[in-house]
């Protein structure tokens, strides 16, 4: 099986968010980056598990990003991917990212993405990629089993789940539950250093959308403490003041 895993880089989850240049740029100073959790914990690990079960399979990582992303790709190689490809460009929109990846996704049996990136929360790349490649797309998969060239996938839907069968090739986005997080071990880290990581220049294209302004939510006013003995008062506040019940 040929498995492609799209991995992205996101600010660490406790990052304090601020902006510069008149609130038009994300302030990257002091920000620590990690591999997007959905990509690392679920998509990548499941791809590696499938590879381990089917001899002759290969897991390729792909990222659209600058040279500083190589550390993310090395981590993915340490977790068990075989090779990595980086398209050397700022990921300026979901469409741009998907269109770059599409060039390298032909001939793959399964293309994995995460459910969403935890910074821009777009959840768009996989669907764009699937349409560009004219492939089926199963979103938010919590379980993926492969038999021959057919996969049985469980996907999250509002308040429940759906089970579908799909023939390879297809695109799938991974949600919590698809696999268990793996911590790279020393051997993996050493091997990762020798695995191929190639860099390609991007195909030129314009972005269909772009961010023109960021805003921060208005600061919360101080919490109003309610006497634990007087829950009637809380109910009154929720009804009369907050008007939510």
């Amino acid at each position: 099986m040929k498995l492609l895993v799209c991995v992205s880089k996101t600010p660490e989850t406790t990052t304090k968010v601020s902006f510069t240049d008149g609130n038009t740029q994300f302030n990257t100073s002091g920000v620590q980056y990690i591999m997007n959790p959905y990509d690392e914990w679920y998509a990548l690990v499941r791809a590696v598990e499938l590879k381990e079960k089917a001899a002759g399979s290969k897991v390729t990582l792909v990222n659209v990003g600058p040279a500083s992303n190589d550390s993310i790709l090395r981590k993915g190689l340490a977790i068990g991917a075989d090779q990595a490809l980086r398209v050397n460009a700022e990921p300026s929109s979901a469409y741009f990212v998907a269109a770059q990846i599409a060039q390298y996704a032909k001939g793959m049996d399964i293309v994995f993405t995460g459910k969403e990136t935890i910074d821009y929360n777009g959840s768009e790349v996989a669907a764009i990629l699937a349409e560009l490649l004219d492939l089926p797309y199963i979103s938010y998969a919590t379980d993926l089993q492969v038999e021959g060239n057919v996969a049985t996938v469980t996907r999250e839907i509002e308040g429940g789940k759906e089970i579908v069968k799909v023939q390879m090739p297809f695109v799938v986005s991974a949600s919590k539950g698809m696999a268990e997080q793996r911590i790279p071990n020393m051997r993996g880290i050493m091997q990762a250093k020798r695995k191929p990581l190639v860099v390609r220049e991007p195909k030129k294209m314009s972005d269909p959308v772009s961010i023109v302004q960021y805003t921060l939510p208005a600061p919360k006013s101080a919490v109003k403490l309610v006497d634990p003995e007087d829950m009637d008062e809380l109910v009154r506040l929720l009804h009369e003041e907050a008007k939510v019940i």
């Binding site: 768009e124 996989a126 349409e131 269909p208």
Partner: peptide, 23 residues
């Protein structure tokens, strides 16, 4: 912006040549 809607958005943006904003 539901499981199904999110799976459609990106595809529609390609098919309709329309810029997409999710959520």
């Amino acid at each position: 912006h539901s499981a199904d809607g999110k799976s459609l958005l990106g595809r529609l943006s390609v098919k309709l040549k329309a810029g997409s904003v999710s959520g």
